[in-house]
Computed example of a mutant assay.
Amino acid sequence: MLALCNLLVACSTQQTTFSPIKPEDVIKSQAYSLEQLYSLKGQDKSWQQLLQSDDLKPLGTFTHHGSLGATVNINNDLIETGPYAHQPINAVHRHMRLHTLGNAALESTEFSKWSRWYQEDGHTQIFRLFKDEVNTSNQRKNAARVETYIPTQRWLPEPDVVREFGARFTVLKSGGCIAPHYCSIFQAKGNNVDHWSVMLRVDSDGALWFYPREDLSKRRLIAANAIGRPFDMKVLDDGLDYEMFIDGQSVGTGQWQRTQKIGFRWGIYVGRSTIPEDIIVLVTGAAMK
């Protein structure tokens, strides 16, 4: 624990020149218009139209058919900047998996069949959920998500061993991220449903939140509006202590004892909430060490 604490202090004191935009806002980037950041080619079916197709059938099972969507073209020059800009996705080489509405463990060779929810452009992963969507892979209510993770990079807590996750996030749409769960766009998560320790969440107004497991009264508003403002996020975690940084600024620490394997997930997860509007989140250069 001491080793992690020393590391966390060191990381927190390195950013001595940071000047926040306003007291509750630590994102350094300006806000870009959505027209500057991305465009679409083609159309996406409504949820009702999709359910009338065979893409997710049979409902309540892990399906492999997939569903295609409009092509998302991002402005790589604006989005892919900072320390994670040149980190390739390498989904096949890294044995990445995709958890989406119709299947919780899709291999990277199947990703292209699920472009309605997941696409890649340059070094950026594109995650989308749509109005009214729900989980269809089992009987769990609502629980819509599209997240990636790497099973081979799960780890058991070890003394004095600190793991790190880092990536650049850009939230384009969050109107569907309503209470009670909002949208988790990152989570340090074990291999059972209640084994998470810390999340990064965004709400329907675009506000960005640090969410600690052990005491939700310690959740912190990171930015009142993150829409269209790329930011770098880093988490350090040794299986007990963890700390989150946004654009080099520490935004929260906590402790949550974990005894099973831990991994990192990123994308969009809405839990118990419904989705009244579309959601789009970009993740650039996701890296773990």
Results as ranks from 00 to 15, higher is better:
287 A>R: 11
115 S>P: 11
204 S>Q: 15
266 W>G: 04
283 V>K: 02
154 R>D: 09
87 Q>N: 14
187 Q>E: 13
183 C>K: 05
65 H>Q: 15
28 K>P: 00
135 N>R: 15
26 V>Q: 00
199 M>K: 13
111 F>L: 03
216 L>D: 10
271 G>S: 08
218 K>N: 12
197 S>Y: 00
109 T>Y: 07
192 N>H: 13
237 D>H: 14
27 I>F: 00
207 A>Q: 03
203 D>G: 09
11 C>R: 15
20 P>K: 10
199 M>T: 07
16 T>R: 13
284 T>S: 02
46 S>W: 04
4 L>C: 14
103 N>V: 10
15 Q>I: 09
284 T>Y: 00
193 V>K: 09
200 L>I: 12
242 Y>V: 07
205 D>M: 11
287 A>F: 06
95 H>Y: 05
247 D>V: 06
57 K>P: 07
99 H>M: 08
74 I>L: 04
258 R>Y: 03
272 R>N: 11
159 P>A: 11
91 A>Q: 05
225 N>Y: 04
36 Q>N: 12
222 I>T: 05
82 G>I: 08
139 Q>V: 10
130 F>S: 03
263 G>M: 08
217 S>E: 08
67 S>A: 15
37 L>V: 01
195 H>P: 02
110 E>V: 01
166 G>M: 07
282 L>E: 01
168 R>A: 06
270 V>C: 06
185 I>T: 07
259 T>W: 09
1 M>W: 01
138 N>M: 02
231 F>W: 06
60 G>I: 11
224 A>E: 15
194 D>L: 13
32 Y>M: 06
111 F>Y: 04
284 T>D: 00
245 F>P: 00
8 L>H: 06
132 D>H: 12
153 Q>A: 08
59 L>G: 05
77 D>Y: 04
169 F>A: 01
236 L>A: 08
3 A>Y: 13
137 S>Y: 05
10 A>E: 14
150 I>V: 14
273 S>A: 09
246 I>C: 01
233 M>K: 02
154 R>I: 05
222 I>R: 00
231 F>L: 09
119 Q>V: 11
181 H>A: 13
164 E>K: 14
172 L>V: 07
123 H>N: 15
214 E>H: 11
172 L>N: 01
283 V>M: 05
30 Q>A: 03
116 R>S: 08
191 N>I: 12
280 I>T: 13
43 Q>N: 12
209 W>D: 02
234 K>V: 14
238 D>R: 07
5 C>P: 04
200 L>V: 09
239 G>R: 04
192 N>G: 10
91 A>H: 07
90 N>Y: 03
221 L>H: 01
135 N>A: 12
8 L>W: 02
9 V>M: 15
